[in-house]
């Protein structure tokens, strides 16, 4: 346990030292949040009250889905996983430490957004703090699991980037973060249901802000958790497969 704790602390420090990771985890999400808060919420006032939620979804999806996969593929390509393995560090603990470290970084970003949005951009505070935290936890878990799954599935860093974008861009466009989902053509609105961000958005609406939703927001939360569990299991299975001794 001490060894695993050391690994998480070292992983956290490495993430901060790595400019690419720092950019994806902190700089771009917070920069985008500043622009959205200052400019875009004036253009689309519907976003303003729930700015904390939409920007949390953006930051977490970006950090986890864009940030994790290339670094995980790089660990494989550079032989780092093998090096760790022969030095007595299990692959599962590498995967877990990356996941936990990502969760911590993205939680910090979400905390900054949640605290500053009402002060800087007149965003509304959630009606239920517990509901907000529960949905945020589901979002963090699910996005990190998807990031780990893409990272353990993609063969190269470029294919990892493609897969990440294939999840990230539709999540951004179809979930209602950028503009209300009901304005989308119906096929795209249906397609949006494939992505967890859409369900997270509904869960935030219903559970955190007590706003009306198209279906039960608790069911939306369950769907997010379920996707996270499936993605975690798939990531563990993929990593086991690619690092299996043959």
């Amino acid at each position: 346990m001490n060894a695993f704790l050391s690994q998480i602390i070292i992983q956290l420090r490495m993430d901060i030292r790595d400019k690419g990771t720092l950019l994806v985890f902190y700089i771009v999400p917070l920069g985008f949040y500043a622009v959205m808060g200052a400019v875009f919420s004036s253009v689309n006032p519907e976003i303003k009250p729930i700015l904390s939620a939409t920007m949390a979804i953006f930051s977490v999806t970006m950090g986890a889905v864009i940030g994790i996969p290339p670094s995980l593929v790089k660990l494989r390509e550079a032989g780092t996983l093998r090096a760790y393995q022969v030095l007595g560090i299990p692959n599962a603990s590498v995967l877990l430490s990356i996941g936990i470290s990502t969760l911590i970084h993205l939680s910090v970003v979400c905390f900054i957004i949640s605290i500053s949005a009402p002060l800087l951009f007149d965003a509304e505070l959630p009606q239920s703090t517990g509901g907000f935290i529960a949905v945020l936890a589901a979002l963090l878990f699910c996005s990190t699991a998807i990031g780990l799954f893409i990272g353990s599935t993609a063969k190269t860093q470029s294919s990892a980037m493609l897969l990440s974008q294939a999840v990230f861009m539709p999540s951004l466009m179809l979930s209602g973060i950028m503009f209300p989902a009901h304005l989308l053509p119906q096929p795209l609105e249906y397609a949006g249901n494939v992505f967890p961000a859409t369900h997270v958005m509904r869960a935030f609406y219903g559970l955190a802000y007590r706003l009306p939703t198209e279906y039960n927001s608790s069911l939306a939360l369950l769907i997010v958790f379920a996707i996270g569990i499936v993605a975690s299991a798939a990531a563990a299975w993929r990593l086991g497969k690619i690092t299996r001794v043959a």
Partner: peptide, 12 residues
């Protein structure tokens, strides 16, 4: 074991 082609993370 010291492997021939392996690397630690660059930021460690």
């Amino acid at each position: 074991i010291q492997l021939q082609s392996s690397s630690l993370p660059e930021a460690i």
